[in-house]
Write a protein that binds this DNA or RNA. Structure first.
Length: 211
DNA sequence: TTATGGATTAGCT
DNA sequence: GCTAATCCATAAA
């Protein structure tokens, strides 16, 4: 049985998420995603994010307006927007300031609960595998953390009573690289993807740095 | 009621 | 590098 709390983690406040998506995306690098399961805690450091600017961003889901699907993005900051894509995958976003603005969490560095994540991913033993396959990519990290729309959409990521939340542990992020967003067809050239420079858990291949 | 396409991944060649 | 798998929300009718 794991301890009932994770040492060294401190909650973020609402103001952290009450800023523009570009700012929140950058600030989220180095923070920790925490999942409380029945038996243990899963934690992973955020190493890659993308900003979606809201209604006026043609690549954002919020561009369709405030619908049943996207209503969380238009709600209070710091809540989880989970959507299902390509018939197979869930992706985790955080609502933030702006009209429908949000940040997509694209990759994590696994910290605690690695064996549990591996089981969620359908991998029997994590030790012998490449750890990057656990949480490197938005669909992969959602599967590793057991994130689904039914369970987690609309969840408050700040509240300690939530089974899914984002916290800080004092880690200081190093240099940050900014690149175009990945996998989108509209506004694909905008420099709105943020990664920790040189981190091996970042998804995708070679970086196309802009600045 | 039906048709369409997508903020991905894994498994081939 | 290329493509199938796979399903939900939307939009059109």
């Amino acid at each position: 049985m794991a301890s009932s709390r994770v040492a060294g983690l401190r909650a973020l406040d609402r103001a952290f998420f009450s800023r523009r998506p570009q700012r929140v995306a950058r600030e989220l690098l180095g923070k920790v995603l925490v999942r409380r399961t029945n038996t243990e805690f899963l934690t992973g450091r955020i190493v890659e994010t993308e900003a979606y600017l809201g209604e006026d961003d043609p690549a954002a889901h919020a561009a369709a307006g405030n619908t049943a699907r996207t209503s969380v993005l238009f709600g209070p900051p710091g809540h989880a927007y989970v959507y299902f894509i390509y018939g197979n995958h869930y992706c985790l976003n955080v609502s933030c300031e702006g009209n429908g603005g949000g940040v997509l969490i694209r990759a994590l560095e696994p910290l605690q609960g690695i064996e549990y994540m591996a089981r969620n991913r359908g991998i029997a033993r994590a030790g012998a595998r490449d750890l990057r396959k656990l949480t490197s990519g938005p669909g992969r990290l959602a599967q590793a953390f057991g994130i689904t729309r039914a369970r987690d959409n609309g969840c408050d990521l700040i509240s300690k009573s939530s089974s899914l939340r984002i916290a800080k542990d004092g880690f200081r992020a190093g240099p940050i690289v900014v690149t175009p967003r990945i996998g989108i067809t509209k506004a694909a050239e905008e420099p709105l993807r943020f990664v920790l420079e040189g981190n091996p858990f970042v998804s995708g291949g070679k970086l196309r740095a802009i600045s």
